[in-house]
């Protein structure tokens, strides 16, 4: 509630000296990216249309943010790290059409990341691939898949690794169960898991997004930790959408659409690269092939038949994740 009040106050104060303003409701770790992206877009839009646009940002845990929009937070734009958190806008609030993902290229995901391992300096436990994580005596820090998109991707990446190796669901479940036996702490969010691993010195490996890993290395000088790329991992797509009901009421559809399109422009894609997000536009991706380690990436659609299915089978109450911990 307080957050919303502050937000309203912010909106109000900025509306006083801006022609148009957009509110982008996003998840936790895009903070740094949008700090660069928004001014770039404002400049581009000013040159193109002469219109001054201010973009306000709201960040927080992804599901919490999506829920706020459903409950009435006036977001023109929503940018998340998994499709379920945007689907909910259709399911619970009918704020967007059902086929929102078809409106932009690449399933409305201009950027992507993947789950990788961060290990301590010198890699003392010699962790090279997924199989090394389930060995006895190895501590693995993963965010809680029940409360965090980051944790869900890590879980699904492990599951998909077994499937991609030719295993079946039973084998995958067994593997994931062994993996989570090695998890000493389940933090509620990706940043919390980072703190546990980095500041509390817990665990031998941290499973998190590639862009978060690079941020950790940058923030901490980079020599205390090493990144390990597994042979196979998940493509974590970052979908975006405008919120139809809100932009129609605010009369901001044109500029909101421009904002979304800017994500796919060479400039927007380059900014993503700067923040260690993998570009999805072919030409930019080809140019930066050398900047991102090439590994086998599978999509959620390919292995799990879409997010809705994955959510239902694995993370709903009584799903495979709960079964791991059931006695």
């Amino acid at each position: 509630m307080l957050k919303r009040l502050i937000l309203a106050a912010l909106l109000f104060s900025s509306a006083a000296h801006a022609d148009t303003s957009l509110l982008n409701v996003s998840y936790d770790v895009t903070r740094e990216f949008y700090k660069d992206f928004n001014p770039a877009f404002a400049k581009y839009w000013k040159e193109k249309t002469g219109e001054t646009v201010t973009i306000n940002q709201s960040h927080g845990g992804s599901s919490k943010q999506a829920r706020a929009v459903v409950d009435g937070l006036e977001a023109d734009i929503i940018t998340m790290n998994q499709a379920t958190d945007i689907d909910i806008l259709y399911e619970k609030g009918r704020l967007i059409p059902k086929d929102w993902q078809k409106r932009l290229p690449n399933g409305s995901s201009p950027t992507a990341s993947t789950t990788v391992f961060l290990v301590r300096k010198g890699n003392p436990k010699n962790i090279k691939d997924w199989d090394d994580l389930i060995k006895p005596g190895v501590g693995v820090v993963i965010a809680n898949p029940k409360t965090s998109g980051n944790g869900r991707y890590a879980y699904l990446a492990a599951w998909g690794y077994v499937i991609k190796k030719g295993g079946d669901d039973a084998k995958a479940k067994d593997f994931v169960a062994k993996l989570f036996k090695n998890v000493p702490v389940l933090d509620t969010g990706g940043r919390g898991a980072t703190t546990t691993f980095v500041q509390r010195d817990i665990g031998d490996a941290l499973l998190t997004f590639e862009n978060e890993v690079n941020l950790i290395k940058k923030e901490l000088g980079g020599d205390q930790f090493e990144v390990v790329y597994p042979s196979v991992s998940v493509l974590a797509e970052n979908p975006i959408s405008l919120v139809d009901k809100v932009v129609d009421r605010h009369k901001t559809r044109t500029v909101a659409q421009g904002y979304l399109d800017f994500h796919y422009s060479p400039e927007g894609q380059e900014l993503a690269v700067k923040h260690y997000l993998r570009p999805r536009v072919e030409t930019v991706a080809a140019k930066h092939k050398g900047d991102f380690k090439q590994l086998t990436l599978f999509t959620i659609d390919e292995v799990f038949g879409g997010w809705a299915n994955a959510q239902k089978t694995h993370f709903a109450d009584g799903g495979t994740f709960d079964q791991i911990y059931a006695k």
Partner: peptide, 20 residues
């Protein structure tokens, strides 16, 4: 926050909310 061991009830509530 380990299930069955150190999960408090308010966290269970938040978890359910996160799943809508």
């Amino acid at each position: 926050n380990m299930p069955m061991v150190s999960e408090i009830t308010p966290l269970i509530i938040i978890t359910k909310l996160e799943q809508y």
